[in-house]
C-alpha cells in the first residue's frame, strides 16, 4: 500500500469518526422512540453557527463554543420535544416526517434570516495546525473532532447500556406503558433523550465548524450522511453508528481516491442497500 493510500485511509477513518459524532444524536432518538428527526442536519447547522457566534462575539475557540453549543442545542431538542414531537408521536409515522421537515425549513431559514446567506469559516488557528506523525499528515481540528466523536459516541453507548438512567430510558423505548407501571415517567425519559441527543449534536456542530464552512443550508448536506450512517449501523445502536460511520468514511475516501469523487456517493449508497439486503435491521440494530 502506497503512503498516499495510507493517508487516504487515515483521513477516511477520521472523517468516519466525525460522521459518527454528528449521527449519534439522531440514532439515539430514532432507537428510543422510533422518530426520525428530519431537522437533525439543521440542529448540527445551529451548533455550527453557535461556534461562529462565540468566535465573533467572544473571540473564543472550541473550549468555549463546545459547551455553549451543547447547552443551546440540548435546550432546542427539549423544546422541540415538548412543543412538537410529543404531539406528533400520537399520529401516524408520516406526521413525524411532516412535522420535522417543517421544523427543518423553519430553523434553516430562520438562521438564513439572522446570519444571511453567506458562507462563514473560522480561522484554522483556533485549534492548531496540522502535524506529521509517521509520515501521515493530521489536521488539528479534525483530530480533535474525531477524538471527541469517539468519546461522545462511546459515552452515550455506555450510558445507555451500563447505567441506571440508561436502562430506564431503554425500558421506555421497549414499552412505555410497562415502564410507567414500574414508576418511570416516559415523557421525562424521552425529553432527556432529546436533550442528550441535542447536546451531542451541538458538540458535533461546534467542532465541525472549526474545519468546515458554515452556511444556512449546510445541514441538508450533513443530514443525508447522518441518515445513511444511522440506518447502516442500525436504528438505536450508538455503537452501530460509530462502526457504520468509520466504514462509510473509509469507503468514501478510498473510492473517491481510486474511482473518482463523483462515484464515491454511488459506492456508499450501493453498499448501504446491499447491507440492508442482507441485514434488514442494519449492522447492529435489533430485529
Amino acid at each position: 500500500m502506497s503512503m498516499t493510500l495510507v493517508q487516504v485511509v487515515v483521513s477516511g477513518l477520521l472523517l468516519g469518526a466525525i460522521y459518527a459524532l454528528f449521527s449519534s444524536g439522531l440514532t439515539l432518538i430514532w432507537g428510543m422512540m422510533n422518530v426520525v428527526n428530519f431537522a437533525h442536519g439543521d440542529f448540527v447547522m445551529l451548533g455550527m453557527y453557535t461556534a461562529v457566534v462565540v468566535w465573533t462575539a467572544l473571540g473564543g475557540g472550541p473550549w468555549a463554543s463546545v459547551p455553549i453549543a451543547a447547552i443551546a442545542i440540548a435546550s432546542l431538542g427539549i423544546a422541540s420535544y415538548f412543543l412538537l414531537v410529543r404531539h406528533i408521536m400520537r399520529g401516524p409515522m408520516l406526521a413525524q416526517i411532516l412535522g420535522t421537515f417543517g421544523l427543518a425549513l423553519f430553523l434553516r431559514y430562520s438562521a438564513f434570516n439572522v446570519f444571511g446567506a453567506n458562507f462563514r469559516t473560522l480561522p484554522d488557528t483556533l485549534v492548531g495546525h496540522s502535524f506529521v506523525l509517521g509520515g501521515i499528515r493530521f489536521e488539528g481540528a479534525r483530530v480533535l473532532a474525531g477524538a471527541v466523536g469517539l468519546i461522545v459516541t462511546l459515552a452515550l453507548h455506555f450510558m445507555l447500556t451500563r447505567t441506571a438512567i440508561g436502562s430506564r430510558m431503554l425500558a421506555v423505548s421497549e414499552d412505555a406503558t410497562a415502564a410507567q407501571l414500574m414508576g418511570i415517567r416516559p415523557q421525562r425519559m424521552q425529553a432527556l433523550a432529546w436533550g442528550l441527543a441535542g447536546a451531542a449534536t451541538g458538540i458535533a456542530g461546534a467542532l465541525i465548524a472549526t474545519f468546515f464552512y458554515t452556511s444556512p443550508t449546510v445541514g441538508e448536506t450533513l443530514a443525508i450522511v447522518a441518515f445513511v450512517t444511522v440506518s447502516f449501523g442500525g436504528f438505536g445502536s450508538v455503537l452501530g453508528a460509530l462502526v457504520a460511520g468509520l466504514i462509510i468514511g473509509v469507503v468514501e475516501s478510498v473510492s473517491a481516491f481510486e474511482i473518482g469523487p463523483v462515484y464515491k456517493d454511488v459506492v456508499v449508497y450501493v453498499l448501504f442497500v446491499l447491507v440492508l439486503w442482507f441485514r434488514p435491521q442494519g449492522l447492529m440494530g435489533k430485529t
Partner: peptide
C-alpha cells in the same frame, strides 16, 4: 469531477 456539496475533499 466532484460534487459541490461534498463533505470532504481530502482524497
Amino acid at each position: 469531477s466532484y460534487s459541490a456539496n461534498s463533505t470532504d475533499v481530502q482524497p
